[in-house]
Computed example of a mutant assay.
Amino acid sequence: MLRVESIVAAIHEIPLREPFATAQDRAPRTVARLVRLQVVLSDGRSVISEAVPAPYVTGETCETLVQDIEAAAPHFIGLDGTRLRPMLAAAHYAVPAYHHTARAALEVAAYRTYSLATGADLWRHFGGALESIDTDITISRTADPVKAAEVAAHAGFRRVKVKAGDPPHQEVERLAEMHAAAPSLTFRLDANQAYTVQEALDLATQIAAAQLPVEFLEQPVKWDDYDALARVAEASPIPIVADEAVKTPEDALNLIATTRVHAINIKVMKSGVTGALGILAIVQAAGRKAMIGCMLESSSGIGFSAALACGTGAFTYVDLDSHLLLNEPQDNPWFVQQGSTLVLAHTHRAGDGA
């Protein structure tokens, strides 16, 4: 029997290739701060997981993540690594319910421990639907939009996520310039809660009038204002996607019952693995679209989300690109990046590259 011997968590900083900012950032970020977690088994082998906090989404920081993981560790020590459910249960009762990112790190560690201990293939565990997925790449608010669009198109990307937040007419002008420079690209506009209802509708209306290739507008209003999101989704001429508004399956039920949002962006770091799968089931049952996204995970975190996305084959929209924004080695045991395509690394599926 392979048992969990120890769990260690430490804060890491990975430089970003370029300064990065969303509408929620007071200043551009130059490093990604995350917590890396290592689980050591009784035979000496180990797996890694990570937690990437977004304080404006879950309220967590790297410091609170370390505290939560260290407090939860005694509940994992001695557990049988070949039994997944008891490890997931430990992640739930040992971490406060609203600390979604800490729970996510422990759940990913549990899945990878189970995979390593049993030789189980996580991609097959989640369904084995696809062996690769096509992702977009994100353009920061701090980037030169025309240059960034040209670089993305040249690299083989067909879709880019554009971080928004400026007045509607400025955003439309910027999108028009990007479209002129890279006409092959389709845009996904992510407002990160920047707008009022009227501003969001003005933006959507101007985009439609200009006939710009915008696939959707993501989280245009405050995360906790479901009435505002409902009003935008009802009147917008382009699809509306919810992100920060949905962290739990309960949130998904409430949002789907009260709004006509086109899709929900599901993130492991925002909801945990169990929560993400629960949200996905609700989205599918309601006939809405699912998107899988990320915070600023390294290749380790993206590797798990890629296995989940490929395994289920359930995501219409894929935004798993944060590893490309980090100044880290691109070789990893989880997947191979081929242009805009993430191809799972077949030879490392057992143990999920542990």
Rank of each mutant, 00 (worst) to 15 (best):
D25Y: 03
Y93S: 11
E131A: 08
T22G: 13
V151D: 12
S115D: 05
I77S: 04
A148G: 09
A51Q: 06
T135F: 02
H92I: 10
S42V: 01
S115I: 00
D68P: 02
R36Y: 01
A32L: 04
E131K: 11
L65Y: 03
R26G: 15
V108D: 13
G127V: 05
E70I: 06
T22A: 09
L16R: 05
E13V: 01
E150Y: 00
A89F: 09
A23D: 04
A129S: 14
R85E: 15
A110T: 02
G128P: 11
E70N: 15
T30W: 07
L37Y: 01
G81F: 04
I137W: 06
G119T: 05
A91N: 10
V66C: 07
A23S: 13
S49P: 03
A105E: 12
M87P: 03
D43T: 06
A23C: 07
C62W: 07
I14L: 14
G127C: 04
D25I: 02
A102F: 10
T101K: 09
T58N: 15
P55I: 05
Q67G: 09
A153D: 11
R29G: 13
D144L: 00
D121R: 12
V57R: 15
T64V: 09
T61I: 10
T22D: 05
L16Y: 05
D68S: 12
Y114G: 09
D136A: 14
V66P: 08
P19C: 07
A120R: 11
G127P: 12
P28S: 05
R124E: 15
A54Q: 13
C62Q: 08
A89N: 14
L79K: 07
W123K: 04
Q67S: 14
V39E: 09
L79T: 01
F20D: 11
G156Q: 08
A104K: 03
P19W: 02
H125N: 06
T101F: 02
T22P: 05
A155G: 08
G44N: 04
R83G: 03
L122P: 03
A143P: 01
L65N: 04
Y111W: 14
Q67K: 15
F126N: 12
L16G: 09
M87L: 14
T82G: 13
T61E: 11
V66R: 12
L65Q: 01
R141M: 15
V35M: 03
T61H: 09
R17G: 08
D43V: 00
Y98C: 08
R124I: 04
V39L: 04
S132N: 14
C62M: 07
L122H: 06
G128K: 08
H92Q: 15
A23Y: 00
A104I: 07
